[in-house]
Write a protein that binds this DNA or RNA. Sequence first.
DNA 1: TACCTATATGACCACATAATCATATAGTCA
DNA 2: TGACTATATGATTATGTGGTCATATAGGTA
Lengths: 109, 109
Amino acid sequence: MAKTALNPQNLESVATRFRILGVPLRLEILRQLADGERTVTALVEATGSTQPNVSKHLTTLLAHRLVKREKRGNSAYYSVADPAVFDLCEIVCGNIERSLEEERLAFGG
Amino acid sequence: MAKTALNPQNLESVATRFRILGVPLRLEILRQLADGERTVTALVEATGSTQPNVSKHLTTLLAHRLVKREKRGNSAYYSVADPAVFDLCEIVCGNIERSLEEERLAFGG
DNA sequence: TACCTATATGACCACATAATCATATAGTCA
DNA sequence: TGACTATATGATTATGTGGTCATATAGGTA
């Protein structure tokens, strides 16, 4: 049942988590982590963003437990905390595709 | 596979949709719509927010095709465009619960 | 017509936050 | 120790946007 998950009590925390995922660079970081753990430097190279920026977003993702961190030697290795986040993206993509399809039908595309 | 859904091409639109869902009042509105269509006035009463604010969020939700609108007589009836959004909330709640559980275990709660 | 209700919208403010820069911290190795 | 690399963080700026207010629009009804 839909209302079981979304209730006035957890509404704020659910919204917060959505907001965390609402930043392209953070999604890009998570996408990179889908293949396994990565260092900050690797993520900087992969995303094309700056080191402080990537580091800051990782801190945010860590604070909200979307990623895990493990320090080994001189580096910090980040990994996805809960693979279920990718299910979220799947559903969102499904949403978008259906939206576009309806739009296409509506305009007789 | 995770990467099928989340790719550099749709990254921006996926993030946008997450951002739309990242506002408590908008989630509350969707929650109200879970039971069926509602007028703006009904949503204003149910949420305790102001009419212009609710109307504005509905406009946003409509622009991103998360809700549908139907005008009948003097009123505008809004309804959920794609019930899959509630699946999103379910998964997010699952995420949060697992996070809290891990936290609890980590601190020996 | 006038009046009421319902909804939308433009202007404005306040706040959150993403990005940048410079710098601090911390680990490795000579 | 010093030099180098990797990461984190404080200060600052710029931008987006949620909320409020006043007002406009539109339909219903007398």
